[in-house]
C-alpha cells in the first residue's frame, strides 16, 4: 500500500493514493467492456444499419427518378411524333379535299361549258332552220305575189 500524504495528515488528505487507484482503473476497464457489449456495439449496429438503409433507399430513389425522367422523355418524344403525324394527316387530308374540290370544280365547269356549247349550237341550228324557213316562206310568198300579179294582168 502506497500512501502519499502531501497534506500532512497522518491519514487521509487530498492526495491520498492507495489501492483505490488500481481498482478504479480495473473498474473503468471492466466498464469499457460492458459498455462496448451493451451500448457501443448494439447502438452502432442499429445506427449503421439505418445509415446503410438510408443510403440504399436514396440511391434506389435516384435510380427510380432517373427511370421516371427517361420514361417522361420517351413519352414526350412519342407525343411529339404523334403530333407531327397528326399534322401530316391533317395537311394530307386538306390537300386531298382541295384536289377533289378542284377536280369537281373543273368537271362542273367543263360540263357547264359543254352544255352551254350544245345549247348555243342548238340555238344556231334552230335560228338557221328558222331563217331557211323564213327564206323559203318569203320565196313562196314572193312567187305567190308574182303569180297573182301576173294572173291579174
Amino acid at each position: 500500500m502506497t500512501s502519499l500524504l502531501l497534506f500532512g495528515a497522518s491519514e487521509g488528505g487530498l492526495f491520498d493514493f492507495d489501492a483505490t487507484l488500481p481498482l478504479m482503473a480495473a473498474q473503468v476497464v471492466l466498464l469499457t467492456f460492458i459498455l462496448n457489449a451493451l451500448f457501443f456495439k448494439p447502438v452502432g449496429r442499429v445506427v449503421e444499419e439505418r445509415e446503410d438503409y438510408v443510403l440504399s433507399s436514396r440511391s434506389e430513389a435516384k435510380k427510380q427518378l432517373a427511370e421516371v425522367e427517361k420514361l417522361e422523355n420517351d413519352l414526350k418524344n412519342q407525343l411529339k411524333e404523334a403530333r407531327k403525324a397528326a399534322q401530316k394527316v391533317v395537311t394530307e387530308a386538306e390537300e386531298d379535299s382541295e384536289k377533289l374540290y378542284k377536280e369537281a370544280l373543273s368537271l362542273a365547269n367543263s360540263e357547264a361549258n359543254a352544255s352551254r356549247e350544245k345549247a348555243r349550237r342548238e340555238i344556231d341550228a334552230q335560228r338557221d332552220s328558222a331563217l331557211n324557213q323564213l327564206k323559203s316562206d318569203a320565196d313562196k310568198l314572193g312567187d305567190l305575189i308574182v303569180k297573182r300579179l301576173l294572173a291579174a294582168k
Binding site: D18, T20, M24, L35, V43
Partner: peptide, 27 residues
C-alpha cells in the same frame, strides 16, 4: 491488507448502475 476509499466506490457504483440501467433500458 489493502485499503480503499469506500465513498468513491459507493458513488461510482451507484452512478455506473444508473448509466448501465439507462443503457439497458434504451437498447
Amino acid at each position: 491488507n489493502i485499503r480503499i476509499h469506500g465513498q468513491v466506490f459507493m458513488t461510482s457504483w451507484i452512478l455506473i448502475g444508473a448509466l448501465l440501467t439507462l443503457v439497458v433500458v434504451g437498447t
